[in-house]
Simulated scan of single mutants.
Amino acid sequence: MTASNLDKSANRALAIVVFDIDGVVRDVGGSYRRALADTVEQYTNGAYRPSQVDIDTLKSEGVWNNDWEASQELVYRYFEKQGKNRTEIALDYQNLVAFFQSRYRGPNPKNWTGYICTEPLLLASNYLETLTLAGIPWGFFSGATRGSAEYVLCKRLGLKSPVLIAMEDAPGKPDPTGLLATVQLLEQQFSAPETTAVIYVGDTVADMYTVEKAKLLQPNRLWIGVGILPPHVLQETSQQLEAYTANLKQAGAKIILPNVQDLTAAKIQELIAGENPA
């Protein structure tokens, strides 16, 4: 069953749920993040390979959701520490992107054999079915390219034409345009009123900032940010785990969960009730 099977009486829906993809639907610790580290290492001539903590520290700034731009920024910062000015660094962004993609997708753009092929899934399609059966519309807003997002959603999870706003469709987070567009598509598809509560599920500070910015644009509806701890964080030290959790909370996360599938229909009902006490 897919979202398209949801009863059109979704105006009774408890909430609309929108999911980020990377770190929520799939584990990108060995794919996107590995490609990012490869790219920084390549463009610093092998002198610097960022750790997961280095990447987390950068992303905690809330503006580096795009991993191509994050790679470029880490390269710049490395050379700045060596006393160079950014204007002195010969860095071709398009070449950097091409290198990144050659690692993430593989050298053949039509036959992907790169890191993307090994990404563990963090949810099962039957989890989404439980939301559908509970009358909860759901969709996806991600900074991943449409090809990458559809690879995991359609090829890996077997979803049929899910509602999706990807990199090519909207400005990068924390700009809320893509989130608002996803919600609008779900409202139209399921005849949900414009006052339906929205839950955005993400794993980064930028995701939570996106929810906060959406609140400013549409203050007449309830917006809830749900933080997910990505797998690489769960494998780090307790101190790093606490720091990551604190950053999500400070950015606006209402709750933080170790896995997206912990966001059950019952948990969603609990969240909504908590924000709308009788």
Score class of each variant (00 low, 15 high):
144 A>G: 11
22 D>V: 06
33 R>S: 13
73 E>G: 04
116 I>R: 14
46 G>H: 10
141 F>R: 12
97 V>M: 12
78 Y>T: 08
50 P>D: 09
32 Y>M: 11
20 D>A: 00
123 L>G: 00
129 E>A: 08
69 E>F: 06
52 Q>R: 12
137 P>F: 00
18 V>E: 04
48 Y>R: 15
86 R>V: 00
105 R>C: 14
78 Y>V: 10
73 E>H: 12
62 G>F: 02
81 K>D: 13
23 G>L: 06
92 D>H: 05
78 Y>W: 08
59 K>E: 11
24 V>H: 01
35 A>Y: 11
42 Q>S: 15
145 T>E: 07
24 V>N: 01
115 Y>G: 03
76 Y>I: 05
140 F>Q: 02
104 Y>T: 01
75 V>E: 05
94 Q>Y: 06
17 V>A: 02
33 R>N: 13
26 R>P: 11
79 F>I: 00
35 A>P: 14
131 L>R: 04
28 V>A: 10
38 D>C: 07
114 G>W: 01
147 G>P: 05
59 K>A: 10
94 Q>S: 15
140 F>G: 03
19 F>E: 04
130 T>P: 04
31 S>H: 10
20 D>Y: 02
45 N>Q: 14
46 G>S: 10
132 T>K: 09
35 A>L: 08
135 G>N: 04
121 L>N: 08
34 R>L: 13
110 K>M: 10
116 I>V: 06
44 T>V: 06
61 E>W: 01
22 D>Q: 07
79 F>W: 10
111 N>G: 08
109 P>L: 05
74 L>N: 11
62 G>K: 03
95 N>P: 04
54 D>H: 13
99 F>W: 03
96 L>C: 09
85 N>Q: 14
132 T>Y: 08
145 T>R: 11
93 Y>A: 11
105 R>Q: 13
48 Y>H: 15
87 T>V: 14
92 D>V: 06
37 A>S: 09
87 T>L: 10
46 G>W: 13
146 R>L: 01
126 N>P: 05
50 P>V: 09
117 C>F: 08
85 N>W: 10
82 Q>K: 15
96 L>E: 01
100 F>L: 11
142 S>A: 06
75 V>S: 06
40 V>N: 11
131 L>K: 05
127 Y>G: 01
112 W>V: 03
107 P>N: 02
108 N>I: 02
134 A>C: 08
115 Y>T: 06
117 C>P: 07
142 S>V: 02
60 S>L: 07
30 G>H: 14
72 Q>C: 09
61 E>G: 05
107 P>E: 10
110 K>R: 12
70 A>H: 09
89 I>L: 01
19 F>Y: 04
33 R>P: 04
125 S>V: 13
79 F>T: 03
45 N>A: 15
109 P>A: 04
72 Q>W: 09
26 R>I: 15
139 G>Q: 02
43 Y>S: 00
34 R>C: 12
32 Y>T: 12
61 E>H: 07
100 F>H: 11
52 Q>P: 12
54 D>E: 09
17 V>N: 00
22 D>L: 03
146 R>N: 04
109 P>M: 05
94 Q>E: 15
40 V>I: 02
40 V>R: 01
132 T>A: 03
33 R>K: 15
72 Q>M: 03
131 L>D: 01
101 Q>I: 08
85 N>F: 13
17 V>I: 01
32 Y>S: 14
134 A>M: 07
135 G>D: 02
133 L>M: 13
122 L>S: 00
94 Q>R: 12
61 E>R: 11
116 I>W: 01
21 I>A: 00
